[in-house]
Simulated scan of single mutants.
Amino acid sequence: MTLLSNRPSRRFLTLDVFTDSALAGNPLAVVLDADRLDDVAMQKIAAEFNLSETVFVLPPEDIAHRARLRIFTPTQELPFAGHPTVGAAVLLGLLDGAPTGSFTVEERVGLVPCEVAITGDGVGEATFSLPRLPERVGALPEASIIAAALGLVDSDIGFARHVPAQYSAGSPFALVPVASRAAVDRAANMKVGWDAAFGQVKRGSAFIYCSEPVDPAHRFYARMFAPSLGIGEDPATGSAVAAFAGAVMDHETLGNGEHRIVVEQGYAMGRPSQIVLTLTVADGALAKATIGGKAVLVSEGRLFA
């Protein structure tokens, strides 16, 4: 028996992204056949799902591209985000039915080329090239102000050559290096003092990281807080790692060639995620950067809205 069978509906699916295990990684809702939804309806639906992001798939403006994506948090639209791009790309690859594929999706930040490989039943991997290379876009306040906003002490802030700063690859983030994984795990949004530390960053999102991963084969361990987006803590944030590529270029010593860096996120939430950042360096400068990861289908349904 199908309830509400006479009401108009559209298909949606959920995936867990930056993992190949259901109920890990970062959950994502993808709404198909969204071309008849207006901005207000999309925002209300994203609030209803109440996940970090919800993606709406629309026909592309250029038929040479695979689809146009619009990305919403529970409170606002984003021009670009990593886990929605990876998850939507894997879903589009699953719908296409081919084991591998290459296509371009349209996002508000610009065109995003994607490479997809289907690796199992409802499981795939996607990599996308950053539509905009990262850049340092501003400073952050002194360590004592940042530490107070995160419930840390001044000595927890910074390690090696890494210092706090604002970076963006389409979406801006406060990037806060922290001395140890224990300090990253102690960090919290203290609310009082948050605006003083991060209010100058558009959307006030803070990506906190250290160089002590859980898996020694990986490179960094991170958490991300975005209270102004309706996201207390995000299990995996590809757009933050895209911005973080700028900090890696500024503070690490990378020779020419390709560098694969795995960033762990979500472990403190019980949602372990692995985000693969690949940097191509030529003549000492960043020539290309990609974000990649796996995604697994979790649920499918009909949206009566």
Rank of each mutant, 00 (worst) to 15 (best):
V176H: 06
G193D: 03
P172N: 01
W194Y: 04
G170K: 09
M190W: 00
R186Y: 03
A179S: 15
A183D: 13
A182R: 09
R186I: 05
D195Q: 10
A187S: 15
A169R: 03
P177D: 08
V163P: 02
L175S: 07
M190I: 02
P177N: 10
P164L: 14
V163L: 12
R181K: 12
A179M: 12
G170V: 06
A182H: 09
A165R: 08
A174C: 10
D185F: 14
A165L: 06
A165W: 07
M190G: 00
M190L: 04
R181Q: 12
D195A: 14
A183N: 06
V184M: 00
S171V: 14
K191D: 10
N189H: 13
K191L: 09
W194Q: 01
L175Y: 12
A183M: 09
A188D: 07
V178H: 04
G193H: 01
R181A: 14
A174I: 07
G170H: 12
P164Y: 13
W194G: 04
A187I: 10
V163F: 06
Y167R: 02
A174H: 10
L175P: 08
Y167A: 02
V192Q: 02
V184I: 11
P164T: 15
A182D: 15
M190E: 09
S180I: 08
R186M: 07
Q166N: 03
A174T: 08
N189K: 00
V163K: 14
V192K: 04
A182T: 11
A187Y: 03
M190Q: 11
S180C: 12
A188M: 12
S180W: 02
S180L: 08
A165C: 04
P164A: 14
S180Y: 07
W194C: 00
A188N: 06
V184E: 03
A188G: 06
K191Y: 04
V176L: 09
A169F: 03
D185R: 15
S180Q: 10
F173H: 03
A187N: 05
A179T: 15
W194S: 02
P164R: 13
P177Q: 14
Q166D: 03
P164W: 12
D185W: 13
V178T: 15
V192N: 03
R181D: 05
D185G: 13
A182S: 14
W194R: 00
D185H: 15
A165G: 04
K191Q: 12
V178N: 06
A174D: 05
A174P: 10
D185Y: 14
F173S: 01
M190H: 01
V178A: 08
N189S: 01
S171F: 15
Y167H: 11
Y167S: 00
V163H: 10
S180R: 09
A188L: 07
W194V: 01
D185Q: 15
A183G: 08
V178L: 10
A187C: 11
V178K: 06
A187V: 11
A169C: 09
R186D: 08
R186P: 01
L175H: 12
A187E: 05
P172R: 04
S171R: 09
S180K: 09
P172E: 05
A188P: 01
Y167D: 00
S168G: 00
F173R: 00
L175E: 08
